[in-house]
């Protein structure tokens, strides 16, 4: 793949470190906040509901600050967290996958899965369309048999399945 050769930094290591430390701090703060609301004291008969989560959240916040400061001090601005070429490759899978899971919420699992596998094979694998169709439909028929028929685990289904009378 030629895109992979683009070695400019899309994101520096430092920025990534700072962003992650900032996010974990925010998560920690939410945990602290909600635990305090529930009661985070040590009562006569042991800790309250929020006791452990409160300190867990507090530790997350403190450790995040340490990580944040550590990243600030580290200095080497140039080292790349991810190169442009790499990022393109990662996004080429991450974006369709995100679209796929959102579609699962609306159309059930089978139709988006057929589209997703076929798209993947056609776009990234450059397979012939009939191979893509065969694999994507075949896999999903297999899953349908395994889950819905043999093990009777109902998976989410949407309009297409109910039109076909498969739900």
């Amino acid at each position: 793949m030629s895109e992979a050769n683009d070695q400019r930094a899309a994101l520096s290591n430092k920025t990534a470190e700072l962003a992650v430390a900032g996010s974990t701090f925010a998560l920690g703060a939410i945990v602290v906040f909600d635990s305090w609301r529930l009661g985070a004291k040590w009562m006569a008969d042991g800790p309250q509901t929020g006791y452990f989560p409160f300190y867990v959240g507090l530790i997350i916040c403190i450790a995040s600050v340490v990580n944040f400061v550590g990243a600030l001090r580290a200095g080497d601005k140039d080292s790349a967290f991810v190169e442009v070429g790499q990022l393109k490759l990662v996004l080429s899978v991450l974006v369709p996958t995100s679209v796929y899971v959102v579609l699962v919420g609306f159309l059930g699992i089978y139709v988006p899965s057929i589209v997703y596998i076929a798209f993947f094979m056609l776009w990234l694998g450059k397979y012939a369309w009939w191979k893509a169709a065969l694999v994507s439909v075949g896999t999903n028929v297999f899953f349908y048999c395994v889950f819905e028929i043999w093990f009777q685990v109902p998976l989410p289904k949407g309009v297409v399945e109910s039109l076909l009378g498969l739900d």
Partner: peptide, 27 residues
């Protein structure tokens, strides 16, 4: 890769869904 990777992701999605039967877990 371009055949097995999407199949694995689909299997993962099914796996995540079946834990509590909710699409939230797939997200």
């Amino acid at each position: 890769f371009s055949v097995i990777a999407p199949i694995i992701i689909v299997i993962c999605a099914i796996g995540a869904y079946t834990v509590h039967n909710t699409t939230f877990d797939v997200y």
